[in-house]
């Protein structure tokens, strides 16, 4: 992007509210921040209206801190809790409808490739489990079938949280929730495997309990999507409100799930993606047309 869109007309510099001045002076645009740099700069999220202890808010903050080129990233969201955050995010982002995020993203990606053929334009989908695995699954999978160069990130809180705690395809079997009053009768959908079979070049499951790892997989997913093909990242992001856990226990919840083996980190890298990554490691190939020298 032309960084001019985050520079203030000189005549108005004194008048701009502080948060904008901070964004201009100390924002992440054109910098090379990684997830470990959080806290050192003005983040892309201003404030958010999500519940205390929200796993999704935690994931989202880490995702936004892991974008390799925030100045050239357009995010497509979907209906759900996360959509409440996006008005506060310092990027171009689209809320369209419930479930059509990957179809919208396909259109955006194709249009930006036409308009800016020599520039990096990352299109990243960030949506919940209902939007990704249930109502939008056909469009998610079809974007993978078509090998759309977009990264799809699921914020998996294992429920429809915004609508009041209904069971989703990603809920654990047996979970008693609204619309599953006798407990969910089928297992949690194995979407990473579906992604792999559908043509994703890179698939990962992670969680905000390990921010470094989350940052690494998100960054990889976006870089691989830029150069190789579609990618999918699933982030376990528990909902303390609907599962009635303590807001301070969100990370504990994830760690318990890991111990119980009902959640595990996972990473699949296709051969093409692997050679792309090793080329990056060896510094043989730049990450993209204009982000020379960044490491995955």
């Amino acid at each position: 992007m032309s960084t001019r869109i985050v520079s203030i007309s000189p005549a108005f510099e004194d008048l701009m509210p502080n948060e904008y001045k901070e964004l201009v002076e100390n924002g992440p645009y054109g910098k090379d921040y990684k997830v470990t740099d959080l806290g050192k700069y003005k983040e892309l999220i201003e404030e958010h209206p999500l519940c205390a202890g929200c796993g999704l808010a935690l994931s989202l903050r880490l995702v936004l801190g892991s974008l390799p080129s925030p100045e050239d990233t357009v995010i497509v969201g979907s209906t759900g809790c996360s959509a409440l955050v996006f008005p506060q995010v310092g990027l171009h982002n689209v809320h369209s409808l419930f479930g059509n995020q990957n179809a919208v993203a396909s259109g955006i990606k194709r249009a930006l490739s036409l308009r800016f053929p020599d520039q990096v334009k990352d299109v990243v989908v960030v949506a919940g489990d209902g939007a990704t695995a249930d109502i939008g699954l056909d469009m998610v999978m079809q974007s993978w079938f078509r090998r759309e160069k977009i990264a799809t990130i699921m914020l998996d809180n294992e429920a429809y949280a915004n609508t009041g705690g209904q069971e989703s395809g990603m809920s654990m079997e047996g979970t008693v929730m609204n619309m599953a009053p006798k407990g969910k009768v089928f297992p949690k959908a194995d979407l990473p495997k579906v992604a792999e079979a559908s043509g994703c070049a890179y698939v990962a499951a992670a969680s905000p309990s390990r921010p470094g790892k989350l940052g690494k997989v998100v960054r990889r997913a976006i870089l691989i999507a830029r150069e190789v093909g579609p990618t999918y990242v699933q982030l376990l992001s528990p909902c303390p409100t609907n599962f009635k856990t303590k807001p301070s226990d969100t990370v504990v919840t994830i760690k318990t799930r890991e111990k119980e083996k009902s959640f595990k980190q996972y990473e699949y890298i296709s051969d093409d993606a692997r050679s792309f990554l090793s080329a990056l490691d060896e510094g043989k190939q730049s990450e993209g047309k204009k982000s020379e020298g960044k490491q995955p």
Partner: peptide, 15 residues
């Protein structure tokens, strides 16, 4: 929505 147009903090179309 292209990260080339102002304002940078822009959501289409928000709640």
């Amino acid at each position: 929505m292209d990260m080339e147009s102002v304002p940078v903090r822009q959501m289409r179309d928000p709640f």
